[in-house]
């Protein structure tokens, strides 16, 4: 399978392990990625002008005819929303008037793929490449907002794709009430307190549900739950201590890829104790 790859800006900074693990897992599963040659920022959640946001996304999509894969839910949501808006001839005309390479109306939101869905498709039931089945590992599937919104292939409120993937790795998805609740990330700089409250709620809920690890599909969710976890614990006076893995990191562990390749040393909350449990259960 050959796909165009859109790493997104965080791949160069706070989401380096997301990028590394995405590339490593794709290689291991025979998914060929061709990076978009001159990609630009999708605008994240900070470009309020819809037509500008659409134009920024269109410039990326016009760089390839292949389906585009991204591991970032925000990029994914923005590209999909833009492709949907570009179905209106008036929007298409306005946008193409400012693009060097034109967006083709033959492209569509169906061509925008999240790494999660590409990986699930590549992994068969009982896949032999899963050399480290994650037996009994209790995983909280955290979707956040933008993987499922705007509405595409997944239910915006009751998606199940992450649970399906978790089961395919032979782990156990925990019942996680806040799985599609926002992490607060988009407003964490200017509205710190509001964002902190929301993020902590999610961590506390996952702990209550008995999760040994939370799996995320978005670099901003990851930042809020992982990089901020220690500070949130101090602020709220409650220990959480749950590692937060990108879905690609979790898959990579099951595929037997090394911690270096998967960027596991870049996570703030170390997943090493969790991994020891995984290995211990393997030999039981």
């Amino acid at each position: 399978m050959k796909l165009a790859y859109y790493p997104g800006c965080v791949s160069k900074s706070t989401g380096k392990e997301m990028d590394a693990s995405t590339r490593a897992v794709s290689a291991a599963l025979g998914i060929e990625l061709v990076e978009l040659p001159d990609w630009n920022c999708c605008g994240a959640t900070h470009v309020s002008h819809e037509l500008v946001a659409t134009g920024l996304a269109a410039r990326n999509m016009a760089q390839t005819n292949l389906p585009i894969m991204t591991a970032c839910s925000i990029c994914y949501s923005n590209l999909r929303a833009a492709a949907q808006r570009l179905e209106e001839p008036e929007t298409l005309e306005k946008v193409n008037a400012v693009l060097d390479r034109k967006y083709s109306s033959a492209y569509s939101s169906a061509k925008i793929r999240h790494a999660l869905d590409v990986i699930l498709e590549a992994l068969t039931e009982g896949d032999e490449r899963i050399v480290v089945p994650l037996k009994e590992l209790r995983v909280a599937p955290y979707y956040g907002c933008l993987l499922t919104r705007p509405q595409g292939v997944y239910s915006p409120q009751f998606p199940t794709i992450l649970e399906n993937l978790i089961k395919r790795l032979q782990a156990v998805p925990v019942d996680f009430r806040l799985k599609t609740f926002c992490c607060g990330g988009p407003i964490f700089m200017p509205q710190e307190k509001a964002a902190d409250d929301i993020a902590f709620k999610i961590l506390a809920e996952a702990k209550k549900a008995g999760a040994e690890v939370i799996v995320t599909v978005c670099p901003l969710c990851h930042l809020m739950l992982d990089a901020k976890q220690k500070v949130l614990e101090q602020k709220m006076g409650e220990k959480i201590g749950i590692p937060i893995l990108y879905v690609t990191q979790l898959v990579g562990i099951a595929l037997g890829l090394g911690p270096e390749e998967l960027g596991l040393f870049m996570n703030s909350v170390s997943p090493m104790a969790m991994m020891e449990r995984v290995y211990a259960r393997l030999s039981e």
């Binding site: 907002c145 933008l146 919104r149 705007p150 915006p156 926002c182 607060g184 988009p186 407003i187 929301i198």
Partner: peptide, 12 residues
């Protein structure tokens, strides 16, 4: 400025 762009309102 408190809107996080989560789109739940929009879905519902």
């Amino acid at each position: 400025w408190l809107c996080t762009s989560c789109l739940l309102c929009t879905s519902r």
